[in-house]
Amino acid sequence: MTEKFILKTTELQKSFSGIIAAEDINISVKEGEIIGIIGANGAGKTVFVNMITGYLKPSSGKIEFMGRDITGIKPREATHIGVCRSFQVSQVFMTMTVKENLMIAMSLAKKSGLELLLPLDDEKLSKECDKILDLYKIKNQSNLIVSTLSQGMRKLLDISMAVVGNPNVLLLDEPTSGVSVEEKFGIMDIVISALKKSGTTVLFVEHDMEIVERYVDRVIAFYQGQVICDAPPSKALKDKKVIKYVLGS
């Protein structure tokens, strides 16, 4: 009870019609930590992220955020209290331009109620928007329709849309999957440095161990719905169980 945790799960469990997708998940996250979540496909990583952000309702167990019980809240409520996420498959507005995507994200994060009836192309908003686009190095593409962009660009946009509301906790679901090898470090450099600056707590799901080793403070490894290791990367990546079940050799 001495340390303050920003996010804490107790005995979290999820089953789909009898099949257990996650169980006994006890994780505590300190503010400002950057955590890598690893595990083979189907180990329960995305289920975990989905439960925290309210896309799935846990079958049992408890999720606490800043001391408050947030078990089973709706995605938009999670967003409101400061738990945001990006997606394994980029969830962006395909028929709009990059800038429109971000403008909508921003206006929803900033305004409420009747203010939403004001015109979208507000000058102040537009400038702020450009700043973020600049930060994530997608400003040159700002007037392109999203469906014409590369996967990497979409991923960046997806992440930038998740951060506009200045979340306290950000969950990134495989930020580099589908991104080319040349792009991936560039993206992670941009994302992590931006988030470190704002002191955001980050949990990201990742398959690429190079990325995990380079950026995270702590590794949580999943295997068959359970946490098999929770340690700093130097230790975790040498852990026998992790090597056997996650790294696969």
């Binding site: 952000t53 896309y55 709706k74 995605p75 938009r76 967003t79 409101h80 945001c84 996420r85 997606f87 969830q91 962006v92 507005f93 395909m94 028929t95 709009m96 429109e100 403008m103 909508i104 994200a105 206006s107 929803l108 994060a109 305004k111 203010e115 939403l116 009836l117 004001l118 015109p119 979208l120 192309d121 849309m161 998740a162 509301g165």
Partner: peptide, 28 residues
Amino acid sequence: QAYLRSSLGHLTTAISDNEIRVEYLGYS
């Protein structure tokens, strides 16, 4: 015209593109 120019009006396209994202942006 005013409605279509507003954030709410643009939200319509956003919803038809991707509902999940709109929820995660914090709007119902």
